Simulated scan of single mutants.
Amino acid sequence: MFDIRVPATSANLGPGFDSLGLAVSLYLTLTVKEEADEWEILHDLGAGIPTDKTNLIIETALSLAPNMAPRKITMTSEVPAARGLGSSSAAIVAGIELANQCADLQLSIDDKIQIATRIEGHPDNVTPAITGDFTVGTVLDSKVYWTKASFPEVALVVTIPEKELLTKESRAVLPDSLPFKEAVKGSSISNMLVAAVFSGDIEKAGALMEQDVFHEPYRGTLVPELSQVRELGHEMGAYGTYLSGAGTTILTMIHPEKAEAFVAAAKAAVKDSEVKLLHVEKNGVQVIK
């Protein structure tokens, strides 16, 4: 018996659309038990999540090791579904690690990233779920180029509206193209954001997170809480606030000494939402035996 633990992830960080990602301290955990006649994955996440081999975790594992013997598995998850915190990416990464362990695939970190990105479609959520910390990634000719860096010390406050927002719905509001000058502007902002993170300048990075031109101007209409939380952040000295992934989660970066006060203020100001204090998870997927 062993456990597989995968962190939640926050993607984009504003202008780093489909490229930047950050591992955060919420977790999907599998307890992998004895072999069985059929796959069984027990959980209390609701009837919409399969408990047999049609579960995304098992489907992912069997796509890599189709002859793997079935197991009994217990799953718990702190990662809310369809909220922009990488719930499907966590499941994919868990499935890859399940196959890696049970079928002794001897996968490297890069192997896992290449496989996970091929399944998920983008490297922004899956890469930090595998490596931990802050990652930058892009796909060229079906190959993922990625790097990992240490994110500056900061407290993370997530505001999670009750409503779900599926990625396909959130992508539907995006434009098919941007004017060349606007695209150049967005690219330069993202470049500078990455440079600020690598140099440890969280104040500059936080300010740049609020300057996206690729998706937040369009998705903000679907998540009106974003402007509300951002304004509160400005009032309370936060570094920056952005829409996590496709939403609806909103992530605010703030100095640890100001975090508790911001949590209390956000809980009072933003209705029908859950507010949590998190931190950057330095470790990616872990196997605990």
Score class of each variant (00 low, 15 high):
residue 219 R to N: 08
residue 269 A to M: 13
residue 231 E to G: 05
residue 249 T to H: 07
residue 242 Y to H: 10
residue 234 H to G: 04
residue 260 E to K: 14
residue 241 T to E: 14
residue 245 G to F: 00
residue 238 A to L: 12
residue 267 K to Q: 15
residue 229 V to W: 15
residue 247 G to M: 11
residue 234 H to R: 11
residue 265 A to Q: 12
residue 272 D to M: 06
residue 229 V to I: 14
residue 231 E to Y: 09
residue 223 V to L: 00
residue 233 G to L: 06
residue 243 L to G: 00
residue 228 Q to N: 10
residue 260 E to P: 03
residue 259 A to C: 13
residue 258 K to P: 01
residue 247 G to F: 03
residue 248 T to W: 00
residue 248 T to V: 02
residue 234 H to E: 04
residue 270 V to A: 09
residue 240 G to P: 04
residue 259 A to T: 02
residue 272 D to L: 09
residue 259 A to M: 06
residue 227 S to G: 09
residue 264 A to T: 11
residue 241 T to Q: 12
residue 268 A to V: 06
residue 252 T to K: 14
residue 268 A to C: 09
residue 260 E to W: 02
residue 226 L to D: 02
residue 264 A to E: 15
residue 222 L to V: 02
residue 221 T to P: 03
residue 218 Y to I: 02
residue 252 T to C: 13
residue 248 T to K: 00
residue 226 L to S: 07
residue 270 V to T: 07
residue 270 V to R: 01
residue 226 L to H: 05
residue 245 G to R: 01
residue 272 D to I: 03
residue 223 V to I: 15
residue 233 G to N: 02
residue 249 T to Y: 02
residue 236 M to T: 06
residue 261 A to P: 10
residue 257 E to W: 12
residue 233 G to R: 01
residue 247 G to H: 06
residue 262 F to N: 05
residue 249 T to E: 07
residue 259 A to Y: 08
residue 252 T to V: 11
residue 222 L to N: 03
residue 242 Y to I: 00
residue 247 G to P: 08
residue 251 L to V: 11
residue 261 A to C: 12
residue 253 M to K: 02
residue 241 T to D: 12
residue 244 S to T: 08
residue 272 D to C: 09
residue 243 L to D: 00
residue 259 A to E: 11
residue 258 K to L: 14
residue 249 T to I: 10
residue 232 L to M: 13
residue 270 V to Q: 06
residue 246 A to S: 09
residue 258 K to Y: 06
residue 262 F to Y: 15
residue 267 K to P: 08
residue 220 G to P: 10
residue 233 G to V: 05
residue 247 G to L: 05
residue 232 L to Y: 06
residue 239 Y to V: 03
residue 271 K to R: 08
residue 255 H to W: 06
residue 227 S to K: 08
residue 225 E to W: 04
residue 227 S to C: 02
residue 271 K to Y: 02
residue 258 K to Q: 06
residue 244 S to A: 14
residue 226 L to T: 04
residue 230 R to T: 03
residue 222 L to C: 11
residue 263 V to T: 08
residue 262 F to P: 09
residue 229 V to H: 14
residue 262 F to Q: 05
residue 266 A to T: 00
residue 243 L to T: 00
residue 231 E to C: 08
residue 245 G to P: 01
residue 243 L to Y: 00
residue 218 Y to K: 03
residue 251 L to I: 08
